[in-house]
């Protein structure tokens, strides 16, 4: 059944398929580490997708397109940041509203951009390295965003673990009253973290509309933001596990299409639902019992902070 599938090409394409989820999930991980639950990832992603697409088409540069996508995500996340941190609105409700608003707003901005080809994002040419039999296609034949996504994961891991900045961020997320007593600006840290999350979600969205598909259509992110949210929990708020989770999900998504193309005898409907089923399955295992996973959630997650309380 697996005979017709070339594993190295499969791995190469699952890495490409996972990029948007990695970016959005690592951004959301930082946001949640700071004690903010932003359920608007899907909305920020799709806004990043359309802002990136419009910028790329208007300027003719895919680099500027990614920049525009990140900027769109930041501006949109600021809406969330101000509403929840300054005006103290409920984070869950605001996040959900952000997603619904983002889907509608992106559709509005996207009017007139259907069916247009964006400028191409070239793969980084590593010359002869890409021709190495098995490792070549896996490691050395991708576009810069893919390498960037892995770099961001490493960066977030390093900062959270080894730097003072990371320590402050975690302190704010674990106990905002203590962090406040020590003189850290809780609200400012949280808004900055939210903006980082917005930038990453926007980049992930722009990757979908500029590289993966590459074109614009309403609802193009098709639930990737929700998967990213699930993967943060799945990863129990650990950066490298985000990478693992995203590759697992991306891998099954790609595998099921490859199985279809290879003529597997499993009914298509089961294959199509398999990535989601396995995500739910792993989530249940991770969060059941008294494992470390459920204890690892930032203690102040989803709690609003007010200095005078």
């Amino acid at each position: 059944m697996l005979g017709g599938i070339n594993p190295s090409i499969l791995i190469a394409s699952l890495m490409v398929a996972s990029v948007p989820i990695i970016l959005a999930a690592i951004g959301e991980l930082v946001v949640e580490k700071a004690g903010v639950l932003n359920l608007g990832v899907e909305g920020m992603m799709i806004l990043g997708a359309i802002c990136g697409f419009v910028t790329a088409v208007e300027t003719g540069s895919s680099y500027l397109g990614f920049f525009g996508g990140a900027l769109g995500g930041i501006i949109f996340s600021l809406v969330f940041g101000i509403l929840t941190q300054v005006l103290m609105s409920n984070q869950v409700a605001t996040g959900l509203a952000l997603t619904l608003f983002g889907l509608g707003l992106s559709s509005l901005i996207g009017q007139g951009y259907n069916g247009i080809k964006p400028p191409a994002t070239s793969t980084i040419s590593l010359g002869p390295l890409a021709d190495i039999p098995v490792l070549g296609p896996i490691l050395f034949d991708h576009d810069w965003v893919l390498y960037f996504s892995i770099f961001v994961v490493a960066l977030v891991w390093g900062i959270l673990k080894y730097t003072r900045t990371g320590l402050i961020l975690r302190a704010v997320g674990e106990n905002h009253d203590a962090a406040h007593a020590l003189g850290y600006k809780v609200i400012r840290v949280r808004i900055l973290a939210t903006m980082f999350g917005g930038a990453m979600a926007g980049l992930g969205g722009a990757y979908i509309s500029l590289v993966r598909v590459p074109q614009w259509t309403d609802g193009i992110t098709a639930g990737a933001g929700w998967i990213a949210l699930a993967i943060v929990v799945f990863a129990s708020w650990k950066p490298w596990r985000v990478l693992l989770g995203a590759y697992l999900f991306g891998g099954i998504t790609v595998l099921q299409l490859n199985l279809q193309a290879a003529g597997a005898v499993i009914p298509v409907q089961y294959l199509s639902m398999s990535p989601y089923l396995i995500t739910i399955f792993v989530l249940v295992i991770m969060s059941s019992g008294k494992g470390k996973a459920s204890l690892n959630a930032p203690a102040a997650l989803c709690q609003n902070f007010h200095a005078f309380r």
């Binding site: 394409s13 993966r212 193309a261």
Partner: peptide
């Protein structure tokens, strides 16, 4: 997105 993924899978095959 889905159509592109399906084509990619076919090309991979």
């Amino acid at each position: 997105a889905k159509e592109a993924d399906a084509v990619k899978a076919l090309i991979d095959q």
